[in-house]
């Protein structure tokens, strides 16, 4: 069966050890984690984990059931195929020789990025959007020489009915 990416939003008790229960489940059962982001929700007792994972339909079903089975997991929502908003942020440190600076700034502008640090030989840019947009920017910047990247992984929320 074909493997597909799934975006899961997981609400968990905000307690020590909970993240390790979840990552342990994934490593122990050989499931994939492509990206992961965790932070507190409006309720400080609850954290939201946004995860991108990959697998056949049977594996994705198991992942959801296994997550639900963990005592500290409140809710698992598969956002894939639903209406949701999604963002990821990347910090990109790119080589910026004098003769490339204008071009880099133009690309940054087009993608509504920001320059957050400037040096004699580099820019650090902040790019925001979905994973595809970030990939697109990275591809355009590659010719200049990317020194380092830090990406947040995806965060997402379901859309509400208007």
């Amino acid at each position: 069966m074909s493997e597909k990416k799934h975006l899961l939003s997981i609400l968990v008790d905000n307690e020590p050890g909970v993240l390790s229960r979840i990552t342990g489940l994934f490593s122990g059962r050989g499931y994939n984690i492509e990206s992961l982001s965790v932070a507190e929700t409006v309720d400080p007792g609850i954290s939201r984990i946004t995860m991108v994972t990959k697998g056949s339909p049977m594996i994705i079903e198991q992942i959801q059931k296994q997550l639900n089975k963990l005592i500290n997991v409140l809710k698992v929502i598969d956002l894939t195929g639903t209406q949701y908003v999604q963002r990821e942020m990347a910090l990109v440190k790119v080589n910026a020789r004098a003769d490339h600076r204008a071009e880099i700034l133009r690309i940054t502008d087009i993608f509504r990025g920001q320059v957050v640090d400037v040096g004699m030989e580099h820019f650090t840019l902040k790019i925001e959007g979905d994973a595809e947009k970030i990939e697109a920017v990275l591809n355009l910047l590659k010719p200049f020489g990317i020194r380092e990247i830090a990406r947040t992984g995806c965060v997402a929320l379901p859309r509400e009915n208007r």
Binding site: G17, S20, R21, G24, L25, G28, I71
Partner: peptide, 14 residues
């Protein structure tokens, strides 16, 4: 021991 037994208990507590 909580770390060690996480994958082989239904749940565990410290």
């Amino acid at each position: 021991i909580v770390g060690i037994t996480r994958p082989c208990t239904k749940h565990n507590y410290l």
